[in-house]
Simulated assay, not measured.
Amino acid sequence: LTGSKTISLEDVKSATNDFSNERVIGSGASGKIYKGELTLFKNSIPVAVKRLHRADSYGEGAFLKEVVKLSSYAHENIITLRGFCEERNEKIILLDYAINKSLDMHLSNSSLTWGLRLKISIGAAKGLNHIHSFEEDQKTVHGDIKSGNILLDHDWKAAISDFIVSKSQGTLGYLDPQYSLIGATKESDVYSFGVVLFELLSGRLAIEKVEKYSHPTLREIIDGGDEVKEKKVVFLAWLAARCFEEKKQRALIIDDIKEKTDLRSVDIVSEVAYKCLQKDQEKRPTMALVIQELEKAFSIH
């Protein structure tokens, strides 16, 4: 079964119990995602069925073109496209089902060891680098890198999702400050990936309420920030940058990781994450360089 295989609407409805609310496993700006069971050659395989909103926003032939493009990006760290449906004004894509769902659901999980966090970050970085280095279209970017779009299989292998077809405008907390001026670029993807790395280091989401932060050093930085007082939430990218400026970056790291890990490994990851967040896009590393640093961190962890 290839990514450009057509699945009938009848089969999609059968796979999702007629788009039952009980089957919904995710929802975003681009559409709802359902868990489905697709029968192929007498075998039943689990799939994630993404039913796109704004189905009529695609011009004649545009959706098929996007699907064919997506299937051409095959890589072990990009979620596999299993098929699509374009019927009765419906636009639906069928993807591999990730049994461990998305990374954002596991960030604070203490059983997600430093080794696993590194494995996930390296896999996601390789998937994003594949997108950025695709020879047939040098301008291709993801546009919405976040922990919610990094899916995990039974062995915690990372795969990037929500690519191309979603037409996303990015997500608050992960957005490059330059995004409103120049839109999605490879460098803005790198910025977003830096935020994900800090999520993995800190066990926190990109945006959290102020009261969730109790660490005295972090509270001191937060309480001194005018941005936080007004909004009552903390942007992790802002906090990470403040921590680096005050040379207090280790205060961000999960205690369990600090106690059980070679801190040189942690420092390598936090340094490259900070470089990803540089305001000047030209000072940010490429994803190929990010992979090098993450693999170096993995080799000594």
Rank of each mutant, 00 (worst) to 15 (best):
T6C: 07
T6P: 06
T6M: 10
L9Q: 00
D11V: 12
V12R: 02
S14C: 13
N17S: 11
D18N: 09
N21S: 14
E22L: 14
R23G: 06
G26L: 04
G26Y: 07
G28Y: 02
A29N: 09
A29V: 07
A29Y: 07
S30R: 02
G31R: 02
K32A: 04
G36I: 00
G36Y: 08
L38V: 02
L38G: 03
T39F: 12
T39Y: 10
K42V: 09
S44D: 10
P46Q: 10
A48E: 00
V49N: 03
K50E: 00
R51I: 08
L52M: 01
D56W: 08
G59S: 13
G61M: 05
L64D: 10
L64A: 13
S71F: 03
S72K: 11
E76R: 14
R82K: 05
R82S: 02
R82Q: 10
R82Y: 04
N89M: 15
E90K: 08
E90A: 05
I93N: 06
I93Q: 03
D96L: 04
K101W: 11
D104P: 01
L118W: 01
H130L: 04
S133M: 09
E136G: 11
K139I: 05
G143R: 07
G148F: 03
G148M: 00
N149M: 00
I150M: 05
H154M: 13
I160L: 09
K167M: 09
Q169D: 10
G170Q: 02
T171D: 04
L175K: 11
D176K: 03
Q178L: 09
S180R: 13
S180Q: 14
G183N: 07
V190R: 06
S192I: 05
F193M: 02
L197H: 03
F198Q: 02
L200S: 08
L201P: 01
S202T: 07
G203C: 02
G203R: 04
G203W: 06
R204D: 00
L205E: 12
V210D: 11
P216A: 08
T217R: 08
I221M: 09
I222R: 08
D223H: 15
K229N: 08
K231A: 14
K231N: 13
K232P: 08
L236F: 04
A241C: 09
A241S: 15
R242T: 01
F244R: 13
F244G: 14
E245D: 11
R250K: 15
R250Y: 12
A251P: 11
K258F: 10
K260S: 11
L263E: 15
S270E: 08
Y274M: 13
D280N: 14
D280Q: 12
D280W: 12
Q281R: 15
Q281F: 15
E282P: 09
K283Q: 15
K283A: 08
M287R: 07
Q292E: 14
E295N: 05
F298E: 15
I300R: 12
I300C: 04
I300V: 05
